[in-house]
């Protein structure tokens, strides 16, 4: 990556180009690795949503309007499990609370004086990955144009991948589709296991969550609880336990 760092030269607000500072184009370039990583995941999302019986236009709208991998995979799996609609929205909300952290952190880096409208637009594209790329830049200050370029290329890749996946899924033979029920779970396993290897806290928290959730699902007195609620309760309990028992940590 080329480092163009002269934050003192430009203090103007603008969504397009900022002369001496990082431009939209720099953002696009910085976002290319994210885009490359997103396409296969988005194809997977399209395939899985299709296999789970979610109508294609719903999956496509999700990628356009939600643009959050974890929320979308979870949303599709809850839809497939027949969870009540507002419980899906509530679960998505809890899952997305962590974005408070990321945008709070990004907000410290975006140039002072940026208009609220521009900030509202940059906020839409903040994901785990674009956040990581933006926050690892060496420049102390980031232009909104740079962040918009980064977000835009990631967003485009995510949506193109979704279309490809949705239409590939429609062509799968029925014998294979029967085995696709495992796909979402395999996807979650693929996301979780590498983090479990890296962090003892993540390992214990996710195992604890699996344990609590099994209890909530299997214990007879709790059978009245729907899956949407048991997931919400489990998530809050296990994350609280993690925050309590792992007080001083820096790794993820």
């Amino acid at each position: 990556m080329s480092q163009i760092s002269s934050p003192l030269l430009s203090k103007r607000d603008g969504a397009v180009s900022d002369g001496a500072n990082l431009t939209f184009y720099h953002g696009v370039t910085a976002g290319l690795p994210v885009a490359l990583g997103y396409i296969p995941i988005a194809i997977t999302f399209g395939l899985l949503a299709n296999a789970a019986g979610v109508p294609n236009h719903v999956s496509i709208m999700m990628s356009l309007l939600v643009f959050a991998g974890a929320s979308q995979f979870v949303g599709v799996s809850l839809l497939a499990a027949g969870v009540t609609h507002w419980e899906i929205v509530l679960t998505t909300f809890i899952l997305n609370l962590r974005h408070f952290l990321m945008t709070a952190s990004v907000s410290q880096r975006i140039r002072q004086g940026t208009s609220k409208k521009t900030l509202a637009l940059t906020a839409f594209g903040v994901t785990d990955e674009t956040f990581t790329v933006a926050s690892l830049r060496r420049e102390p200050e980031l232009s909104p144009a740079f962040v918009l370029g980064l977000n835009m290329v990631a967003f485009s890749a995510w949506n193109i991948g979704t279309w490809i996946g949705v239409f590939l899924g429609a062509g799968l033979p029925a014998s294979l589709q029967a085995s696709m029920g495992i796909a979402l779970y395999a996807m979650f396993i693929g996301l979780l296991i590498p983090s479990m290897r890296d962090s003892r806290a993540v390992l214990l928290i996710s195992l604890l969550a699996a344990g609590i959730h099994s209890l909530l699902q299997w214990l007879p007195p709790l059978h009245g609880l729907s899956t949407g609620w048991t997931i919400i309760i489990t998530t809050v309990l296990a994350a609280t336990a993690g925050a309590l028992f792992y007080p001083e940590r820096s790794d993820t």
């Binding site: 029967a178 979780l192 993690g242």
Partner: peptide, 24 residues
């Protein structure tokens, strides 16, 4: 930390025990 751990807790709960009944 609580916010950071939420995704891992949610994914753990999503995998288990739901996975066991996903294929018939």
């Amino acid at each position: 930390r609580f916010l950071k751990y939420i995704p891992y807790a949610a994914i753990g709960a999503l995998i288990f025990p739901g996975m066991l009944t996903s294929t018939g």
